[in-house]
Design a protein around this nucleic acid. Structure first.
Lengths: 252, 252
DNA sequence: CAAGTGAAGTTGTATAGATAAGTGGCGCCG
DNA sequence: CGGCGCCACTTATCTATACAACTTCACTTG
C-alpha cells in the first residue's frame, strides 16, 4: 500500500514532522532539539536528509543552532507556504478567515510600457488586467491590480472571478508559479484607491508590487496590491547565518 | 603562502566567485550556468560544495534551476550583506551614498510595556532610546526610533552619535547581532514624524519595526524606522523551492 | 510532416565515511 | 573555592558513489 504522498522526499517529510512537533507544542520554545545522530537513528535515515530538514527549520526561524551548539526551539512565527504569498485566497484561508472579492474591472488591453517591462513582453502585446476589491471575513482589506500575459489572462475572461480563485483557475490549466519578486513600499491613495477602499485621497496605503514566474522563467503576472494600513503587515526573519534574499533599495 | 581568508569554507569561496562572474557581467542574464559537473572539474572539488554554492545563488535570486533543467542567470538585484539590514550607515554606504544623521534625542528612561515586550525585559527596566533623522547624500530619508537594553545602551550615552555609527560602537564592545525580525507596514505620520521629516501629519510613511538578537538569543535593539515614501522600498525574492521566512500577517 | 521514442545530459536525493572545529561539562590543580 | 585544561559530544564541511527523476534533442516512424 502506498502512502498518500509518495513523491515527497525524505528530508521534506522529516521537516514536516519536526515542524509539527514544534508548532504543536510537543517541543516547546527553549527545548533542545535532539542531536543529528538521535534523529538519524529515530528515523532510520542518513545524515544528509536530517541536516537538510534542520537547515530548512533554521532558515524558517523555528530553531537556532551553530557549530558544536545543539539547536534550540525558538518562538518564531509559523511559516507560511509559498502559495500563501501569491494568492489572497490562499493566505486568507491559511490564517483562518474567509476570503471575499468584488471584481471592479476585467479587461483585455494592449500592455503599456511599465507592464511590458515587468512582464518581459513588448508594449502593445495584449494583456489582461483585473481590478478587484478583496475582503477577509467581510472586511475590506486590499485593492488588487493584476496584469496577466495573454496566454494566462485569456483563461480568465470567461470566468466568474467573484466566486473562483484566479490561482486555482490557472493551476487547473497547468500554469504553476515557482518564483516571485516582491517590492514593498508605502504610497498615498489615488482616486481609484480612495473610491474602492473608502479612504481619503492621499491617505497611507501599504503597497506590494509582485511579479510571478513559471518554472521556465517566464513572467506571467504583475500585481500592484494596496493594503489598508493597520490590518496587514509583512514579517521577515533574517540572520547572518542563513541570509534571505531581502534587499532594501531605492524605490523604483 | 596563505590566502587572506583561509577560514572561509570552499562552498563560500565558490559562491563568491560565481557571484562575481554574474554581477561583473561575465555571465550575462539569460546565459546558462555551467553544469555541476563542469564546475566540479573546474574548481577541483566534490559535488557537495558546488551544490551548496548554487543553492545560495538560487535563494538570492541570481540564478534559476530545477531538476533536469540547467540553471540560467537571472537579472536579479545584487544581494546585500546581513549588516546592511541592521545599520542605516552600512546600507547607505553599500549603495554608494554618504550617510548622515542628526540626533534629536538620546535618553535613558524606564521601559514601557511595548518596549519591554519586544526586548524581552521587565517594564520599568532602564533602556536607552535614540531618535535620529537619517540622511543619504544629504537627503532626509528616514526617522529612526531605536530602543536598546541597558547593557548596550549605556555604551552610547557618552558617544557623539552624530558622527559615529551605533553599530560600529556596539561591535567595538563585542556586541554582535546575528538574527533580526522585521515587520513592515504603512502608517500615517504623527506629529513627531511630521516635524522632523517635513511632511504633513497623516501623510504616508513606510514603517519598519525591527528586533535584533545576539548569538545567545537575547534581544538587544528594538527599532521603529519610518521612511519617506518614494525613496525606499523593500525587495524580497521568493520561490517554492527555497522558501524564505517571509510572513504576511495581521498587523500587530 | 507530425508525433512518439529513446538516449544523453543534468539536477535531485540518499548513503557512508572521514576530518575539522566549536561547545559544554567534568575533574584536576593551585 | 576558583580557574584552567582536557575530553566527550555535537555540528560543519568535504569526498565518493549510486540511483532516480526530469529535460532536451535528435531520430525514427506512421
Amino acid at each position: 500500500m502506498k502512502c498518500v504522498t509518495p513523491a515527497s522526499p525524505i528530508h521534506e517529510r522529516l521537516r514536516l514532522e519536526l515542524q509539527r512537533r514544534i508548532v504543536s507544542g510537543e517541543w516547546a520554545p527553549g527545548d533542545r532539539v535532539p542531536s543529528e545522530a538521535s534523529l538519524r537513528e529515530e528515523f532510520g535515515v542518513s545524515r544528509g536528509p536530517v541536516r537538510q530538514a534542520l537547515a530548512a527549520l533554521r532558515t524558517a526561524g523555528l530553531i537556532s543552532g551553530g557549530q558544536g551548539r545543539q539547536a534550540v526551539v525558538l518562538d518564531g512565527a509559523v511559516p507560511q507556504p509559498f502559495d500563501a504569498f501569491l494568492s489572497f485566497t490562499e493566505w486568507t484561508r491559511a490564517t483562518g478567515r474567509t476570503p471575499g472579492q468584488r471584481t471592479v474591472e476585467l479587461a483585455r488591453r494592449p500592455a503599456d510600457a511599465i507592464a511590458a517591462g515587468r512582464l518581459d513582453c513588448e508594449p502593445g502585446d495584449p494583456v489582461v488586467q483585473v481590478l478587484r476589491v478583496r475582503t477577509a471575513d467581510g472586511v475590506v482589506t486590499m485593492l488588487e491590480r493584476a496584469t496577466f500575459i495573454w496566454e494566462a489572462g485569456r483563461l480568465l475572461l470567461d470566468q466568474d472571478l467573484d466566486s473562483a480563485s484566479i490561482f486555482d483557475t490557472l493551476r487547473g490549466h497547468g500554469l504553476h508559479f515557482v518564483r516571485a519578486r516582491h517590492e514593498i513600499d508605502a504610497i498615498g491613495a489615488d482616486a481609484t484607491d480612495a473610491a474602492h477602499l473608502g479612504v481619503p485621497v492621499g491617505s497611507p496605503l501599504l503597497r506590494e508590487r509582485r511579479v510571478s514566474y513559471t518554472p521556465d522563467g517566464r513572467a506571467v503576472e504583475a500585481a500592484d496590491d494596496r493594503y489598508l494600513p493597520g490590518l496587514t503587515s509583512f514579517l521577515i526573519e533574517n540572520s547572518s547565518h542563513n541570509p534571505v534574499p531581502l534587499t532594501r533599495g531605492a524605490a523604483s
